[in-house]
Amino acid sequence: MVYHSAMHFPQVDSKSLDAALEKLARELKSYLEPKPRAALVGIANGGITLAQLLAARIGGDLPVGVVNSSFHRDDVTLKLLPSNFALTDLDFEIDGATIVLVDDVFATGRTVRAALNELFDYGRPEEVCVAALVDINQKKLPLHPDFVGLSLELEPGQKVKVRLNPDEPAAHIIELEHSPA
């Protein structure tokens, strides 16, 4: 079942999503300012558009990359990957850099755990932090997002899906989903 945001999240409309994005960009900008070398890395596929939008708002030619954490996931053999899943693309030096892993939704922490492994296959970053547009507080691992746009409390079994529109902030959507048991 998929509901439109307006039905279940009256407090999270497109405007609030955009405000959350702006908040993330502002916090990241001030955090990254003193760092000698930093990059945003979107976790495929949900974090890719978010990383690009954040980089544009932060400004200053921040490099943007992609990690596909699929083959480090603990559930990779349980279901097949959709064929539009983006490949890892890190076209900059990882060694010594400050890397911000970016995802649209932070839920259990499993995705970030796998993304860290994928990232470290490419080098040794000086520092890694995690930025999520939405934290749904379903943490199952000792990992947490360092930067959060907005935080939601969900019922067990509920998930959210975020659809960001790069050209039209008013078209950002957040949907509530009941995940199959």
Partner: peptide
Amino acid sequence: HHYAAQFKQSLGRTQKKLPT
């Protein structure tokens, strides 16, 4: 072919082994 393309991406990196 889709999975082959995914795996091909891993050939060019420092650590080529996947734990899959």
